[in-house]
Amino acid sequence: MDTSKRNRLIERLAPKPEPQIVSIEEFFDGNDDLGSIGCNLIEHPGMGAFRDIFARIARRPDVTTVYAQIAELDPGEDCWPFADTVFVVGSLSEDELAEALAPLEPDEIWKTADSDIPSDIRKGRDTHVLAVWWD
């Protein structure tokens, strides 16, 4: 883990109100902590798998952007901030996203109601938002 990137991320997000949202690229930049996402998986596919799959999703023409929602900003000195939810903004369907994310075994994927979308994501959005959740 890149501790300096972890510390900068925490310092940047700490003053922001919850839920704290970060781009998926920033969430994975310097992050090799298996406990930071998908920690409920019996056989965690590794941070490389999470990073690569979300990078492919983010590059899709039907995806505008991808965000991680931080559930616990500072879970401990040697831990990266923890995310249990990822938001995918775009026009892809729930089935297409489920297929792309199958190796990561998310617990749920759903189209969010406008009222459930964090304000940082709601701003300027003209497509739907899918949420991905790991228990």
Rank of each mutant, 00 (worst) to 15 (best):
R8L: 13
I57P: 10
V88M: 12
Y67H: 13
F87H: 15
D114G: 11
I117V: 15
L104D: 06
V66I: 07
D84K: 10
H128S: 12
E108P: 00
R12I: 04
P45E: 09
V22Q: 09
R51P: 06
E99P: 00
A100F: 00
I70A: 09
P81A: 07
E99L: 08
A68P: 06
A131M: 08
L104R: 01
E43K: 13
A68T: 01
R60G: 02
K5G: 05
E108F: 12
I42T: 14
P103I: 00
I109C: 10
G46P: 03
D62K: 02
R125K: 11
L92E: 11
W80T: 01
S36D: 04
R56W: 01
I53R: 09
F28N: 07
D33A: 06
P17C: 05
L104M: 05
E77L: 10
F28E: 03
P81I: 01
I109V: 15
G90Y: 00
E18R: 13
W110V: 13
P17I: 03
L104P: 03
S115R: 14
L34H: 14
E108M: 10
D29K: 02
K16D: 03
L97A: 07
S23D: 15
P75L: 05
S23L: 14
I42E: 15
F50I: 06
S91Y: 00
L130Q: 06
D135F: 02
M1Q: 12
L130E: 09
E11N: 13
W80P: 04
W134S: 11
E77H: 07
E26H: 10
V89Y: 00
F54Q: 13
F82R: 07
F27W: 05
G76R: 01
G48F: 03
Q69W: 06
R6H: 03
E25K: 15
D135C: 08
R60S: 09
D2H: 10
G46I: 06
H44I: 07
G30P: 08
N7S: 13
W134L: 09
K123N: 03
F54I: 12
G76E: 08
L104H: 05
D2W: 08
R125G: 05
A14G: 09
G76S: 05
G124W: 08
E96T: 08
A113K: 15
S91M: 00
I37V: 15
I37L: 14
E108T: 12
I21K: 03
D116F: 02
Q69Y: 02
S4K: 02
D33R: 07
C39M: 09
I57N: 08
R51E: 15
S91H: 00
N7T: 13
H44N: 09
V86Y: 10
T85E: 13
A102K: 09
D135P: 02
I21T: 13
A14T: 13
K5L: 14
I117A: 09
L73D: 01
L104T: 02
A58L: 07
P61R: 11
I37Q: 12
L9A: 11
R59W: 04
E99N: 02
S91K: 01
E105S: 12
L41C: 08
